[in-house]
Design a protein around this nucleic acid. Sequence first.
DNA 1: CCTTTGCAATACCTTTTGGTATCATAATAA
DNA 2: TTATTATGATACCAAAAGGTATTGCAAAGG
Lengths: 113, 113
Amino acid sequence: MAAEQGAFRALADPTRRQILLHLSRADMTIGEVSDCFDMTRGAIKKHLTILEEGRLISVRSSGRERINRLEPLGMKSASEWLNYFNQFWDNKLVALKNAIENDDINAKENNND
Amino acid sequence: MAAEQGAFRALADPTRRQILLHLSRADMTIGEVSDCFDMTRGAIKKHLTILEEGRLISVRSSGRERINRLEPLGMKSASEWLNYFNQFWDNKLVALKNAIENDDINAKENNND
DNA sequence: CCTTTGCAATACCTTTTGGTATCATAATAA
DNA sequence: TTATTATGATACCAAAAGGTATTGCAAAGG
C-alpha cells in the first residue's frame, strides 16, 4: 500500500527538491551537489539517501566517486496521485465560471451540492 | 519563494493524504473525519491544521461545527512543480522505445548522452 | 611509499513531528 | 438551567528529522 509514500516523504524537504532540480540538469557526484549548498557533505549525503529510498534518484559508482542521477520515473507515483485531484479543480474552475456568468445569488444554491 | 512548500509538507504524511481523499468525496466535520481513523480527534485536528496551512483544505464554521472542505486548487502548486519533470521521463520513455526499436547494441551508444 | 581526495558511517545534538490526555468553551438539547 | 456535544488549546511524550563533527577507508596522484 502507498508506493508514493517514499516519494512524498523525499519531496517534503526544500533542499531535496532543489537537489532534484540540479540533477535534472546534470548527473553529479556528492561533492558537486554539496558545492551547491551551504551545508556539510554529511547533510547532503543524508538527503541523497532519502531521495534514493524514494526512488527519485539512482547512484552508480565510478572509481571512488558516487554519481547521482535523477530518476524521473520515480516522480510518477506522486504525480499520478496528485493528478487524481485535477478533476476537482477542473470542476471548481468550471463552477466558478458558471457562478460568475449566472450571478452570485444563483451560485449559492448551485454550490450547495 | 517556494509556494509549494506548505503543500509538499502537508502531503508528506499518509494520514493527511487519506484525509484529502475522504474530503474529495464530501465535506466533513472534524468529528466525521476522525471517525474514519483510529486516532484521537486531537491528532486529526493537528493534521487538518497542517492541511489548512498548506492551503489544501479550507474550513468554515456552521454553528458549533467546523466543516472541512477540499481546496483542490491548493494542490496545483505541487502538481505543477512535479510536472516540470514530465519532460524527463517522457524523454526517457522515448529513449527506451528507440533503444528497443534500434536494437540493444546501438542503444548503448545512444544512451551515453 | 605517502599524501590527498571522495566518500561512508557513526555519535551526538536540537528541533519538529505525530500522537495522547486533559481542560476550557461555545452551541445545542432537554 | 443543566447536560451534552463539537470543538479549540495546551502540556506532555517518544520518535523522527535535519544538521554537525569526527573517524575511517579506498582510490588517485605525487
